[in-house]
């Protein structure tokens, strides 16, 4: 899509905004609708949009496939790790009181933050790796073919 000037300029403006919105959804999820799943998808959309308008190779310079595959596992490990941490400190699995034993409410908040973070990371990475897997298989379709 080399000659679509408007698309490229708009994408450059939008990609950053979309990422910012994703982080808002992620970290404001305690107060407003949204959370890890939604934020993860929105963050992945920013990368996918960039990849659609420019090229997959450009995105893969920022997020190489090996990194995406590892972050996919990292998110799940962060989630399960929170649970294992509370298990090791003598509480039930995923009981967030373990994170701040003297202030259970703070522990809950921190626990939700970590867990939602794990969800967000995994969802972003999975969406991106599925996108890579689909797009990486085909030769790029010419503009006139659409």
């Amino acid at each position: 899509m080399r000659h679509h000037l408007i698309l490229r300029v708009i994408t450059k403006i939008l990609a950053g905004t979309i990422m910012l919105f994703a982080f808002y959804v992620q970290f404001h999820g305690d107060y407003s609708p949204g959370g890890g799943f939604q934020a993860g998808v929105i963050l992945a959309v920013a990368f996918i949009l960039y990849g659609l308008v420019f090229s997959v190779e450009t995105v893969q310079q920022v997020m190489p496939p090996w990194l995406v595959h590892r972050t996919m596992a990292l998110g799940l490990l962060l989630y399960a790790g929170t649970g294992v941490f509370s298990l090791l400190t003598g509480y039930n699995f995923l009981d967030y009181t373990a994170l701040a034993p003297h202030q259970p409410e703070h522990g809950q908040e921190l626990g939700i933050l970590l867990v939602e973070g794990g969800v967000g990371i995994t969802v972003t990475a999975v969406m991106l790796s599925i996108y890579y897997a689909f797009v990486g298989r085909t030769p790029v379709i010419g503009d006139e073919e659409w």
């Binding site: 999820g29 107060y31 959370g35 989630y79 995923l94 409410e105 809950q108 908040e109 939700i112």
Partner: peptide, 21 residues
């Protein structure tokens, strides 16, 4: 117990933590 204003998030991440995992 949790003190997070969005109850959906609280249920999803804390009460139903296993499900979300």
């Amino acid at each position: 117990e949790i003190g997070v204003p969005n109850i959906v998030t609280a249920i999803l991440a804390s009460y139903r933590g296993y499900d979300t995992l």
